[in-house]
C-alpha cells in the first residue's frame, strides 16, 4: 500500500468520524431535555425492531404463509413508523398553516385507520 492511499484513507475515515460526531452532537442537542422527541424516537426504534422480528420469522420459515397476515403485521409497523416520523417532522418544525396540535390529532386519526386496516387484513 502506498502512503498516499493510506493518507487518503485516513483522511476519509477521519472525515467520516468527524461528520458522524457532529451529527451525533446535533441530534443529542435536539433531543436533550425534549421528552416528546425521545418518546417518538424510541417508539420508532421499537417499530423497526418489531418489523425486523417479523421479517426474521419469515426468513426462518422460508415461507410467507399466510401472506396476508404477514403483510398486515409488517405494514402495521411500517405504516406506524411513517406516521410517527411525519409527526416528528412536524414536532421539530411545524408545517405552514398546520399547528402541532392539529398534526397530533391527524396522527391519532390516521393511526386508528391504520390499526383498523391491519386488523381487517390479518383476517
Amino acid at each position: 500500500m502506498t502512503s498516499k492511499t493510506l493518507k487518503t484513507r485516513r483522511n476519509w475515515s477521519s472525515k467520516f468520524s468527524e461528520t458522524f460526531q457532529a451529527s451525533l452532537q446535533t441530534y443529542k442537542k435536539q433531543i436533550d431535555g425534549n421528552s416528546r422527541l425521545k418518546l417518538i424516537d424510541i417508539f420508532c426504534g421499537f417499530l423497526v425492531a418489531v418489523g425486523v422480528i417479523q421479517f426474521a420469522f419469515v426468513c426462518v420459515l422460508k415461507d410467507n404463509f399466510p401472506f396476508n397476515a404477514f403483510l398486515a403485521g409488517f405494514i402495521c409497523c411500517v405504516g406506524q413508523f411513517v406516521l410517527t416520523i411525519s409527526l416528528r417532522m412536524q414536532v421539530v418544525k411545524s408545517f405552514e398553516g398546520i399547528s402541532k396540535e392539529r398534526a397530533f390529532g391527524e396522527f391519532i386519526v390516521a393511526s386508528l385507520v391504520l390499526h383498523f386496516i391491519s386488523l381487517h387484513f390479518v383476517n
Binding site: 421528552s35 416528546r36 425521545k38 418518546l39 424510541i42 417508539f43 426504534g45 421499537f46
Partner: peptide, 10 residues
Amino acid sequence: LVACWFTTGS
C-alpha cells in the same frame, strides 16, 4: 419499549 421510555426519562 416501555422500560426504555421510563429509563430515558421520556
